[in-house]
Amino acid sequence: MNPVNYLYLAALLFTIGATGVLIRKNAIVLFMCVELMLNACNLAFVAFSRMHGNLDGQIIAFFTMVVAAAEVVVGLAIIVSLFRTRHSASVDDASLMKL
C-alpha cells in the first residue's frame, strides 16, 4: 500500500481534532480532540519513518506517547477539579482571569 495514504489519513485526523478543539465547549471532548491531533502526528511520524527507511520517526512517536500520557494525567486532574468547583465542564465558563 502506498504510504502516502497514511499521510492523508493523518491530515484528516488532525483536521478533525483541530476543528473539534475550535468548536466544542466540553473540556473532555476538547481533550479527546487534542489527543486525536497528537495521534495524527504520531501516524504521520511513523509513515515518514517507513517512507525514509529509518527509525527516527518511530522513536519520536514514542516520545510523543510519553508526553501525551503525562499530559493526560495533568489535564484530567485539572478538568476534574474544575468540574468539582464549578459543576460544569465547559471551557468557556473558566474565563474568570480576564480583565
Binding site: V21, K25, L99
Partner: peptide, 17 residues
C-alpha cells in the same frame, strides 16, 4: 491589545492555529 486576552481557551486556540 488587552482585549485579545478574553479568557476563552478556544480563541487562544484559534490564534495558535
Amino acid at each position: 491589545l488587552r482585549k485579545l486576552q478574553n479568557g476563552y481557551a478556544r480563541s487562544y486556540a484559534v490564534s495558535m492555529f
